[in-house]
């Protein structure tokens, strides 16, 4: 009997935190991020209404139908009701997933635009590295045997290959604002996961696979990249940042790096 009000209070408290957004997403920095937040909101509204209605109803039946000396009704069910709520939930749930499909399609069913800047992302226990093809636009040859983390060569770049000579390697992901970026995700040991909260994007790096992934960031700033797939004891330290820069700054950075080579 007391349980009814307890359920109600819990429901209100939980709903409060979803409305107050005390702990919430960071602001999105891409078109995709905006669309993501819309889909999240749609889902939140639908599930929120169901959540509120179901919990309140549960509290209500607990209070209303407590044993107060009445006789319980003898009822085995109602086929009309069964059909109604089965079809209603089916339409609602499947409708939601279909509405979100556009977002998924733009991330995974479309190729990066032809002018997208290619960047190779390398995950390893427990650090990130990023490789830019350099002025020739080509990623050079790599060799496992040449890998030397201490010597600043996590990719194992082969300096005998001219295409590799001008490749830039960075510990943070630097991209120009508003330009499409094409990542090639790749790991050399275990599974990792590339995640940028502000982009609303996440993708596993899988040993033996090269996974393409594209995005466009519209807001200058620095955003953290936490590894989001368990990769071993240093998983919690596997951090890098995404730096979205103005195009001029980006070009300047590239020139500086080339000059240092």
């Amino acid at each position: 009997m007391l349980l009814g009000p307890v359920v109600w209070v819990l429901t209100v408290v939980i709903c409060y935190f979803f409305v107050a957004k005390t702990w919430w997403f960071p602001l999105p920095i891409s078109q995709h991020g905006l669309q993501y937040d819309e889909q999240f909101l749609r889902t939140l509204v639908v599930t929120g209404i169901i959540f509120f209605a179901a919990q309140v109803a549960l509290g209500y039946v607990i209070v209303r139908f407590r044993d107060d000396g009445r006789r319980a009704s003898y009822l085995h069910g109602n086929n009309k009701l069964e059909t109604l709520w089965t079809s209603a939930t089916a339409v609602l749930f499947i409708g939601l997933v279909l509405m979100g499909t556009r977002i998924w399609a733009e991330v995974h069913w479309t190729e990066a635009p032809a002018d997208a800047i290619p960047i190779e992302v390398l995950g390893k226990q427990f650090a990130w590295s990023f490789r830019y093809p350099g002025p020739d636009g080509k990623f050079g040859r790599t060799d496992l045997k040449l890998i030397n983390d201490a010597g600043g060569n996590p990719f194992g770049l082969d300096d005998h290959d001219p295409a590799a000579k001008d490749d830039l390697v960075s510990a943070s992901l630097k991209v120009p604002v508003g330009k499409p970026i094409k990542l090639i995700l790749h790991t050399r040991d275990v599974i990792h996961n590339f995640f940028v909260r502000e982009l609303r994007l996440k993708q596993d790096l899988v040993p033996g696979m090269e996974i393409p992934f594209h995005f466009t960031a519209d807001k200058i700033g620095t955003y953290e990249i936490p590894c989001s797939e368990l990769c071993g004891l240093g998983h919690f330290q596997m951090r890098s940042v995404l730096q979205v820069m103005s195009e001029a700054d980006f070009e300047k950075w590239k020139q500086e790096q080339l000059a240092q080579k």
Partner: peptide, 12 residues
Amino acid sequence: GQPSLDLYFHDT
């Protein structure tokens, strides 16, 4: 259950 929303929520 929605792949689109899982783009953020996976493994959180």
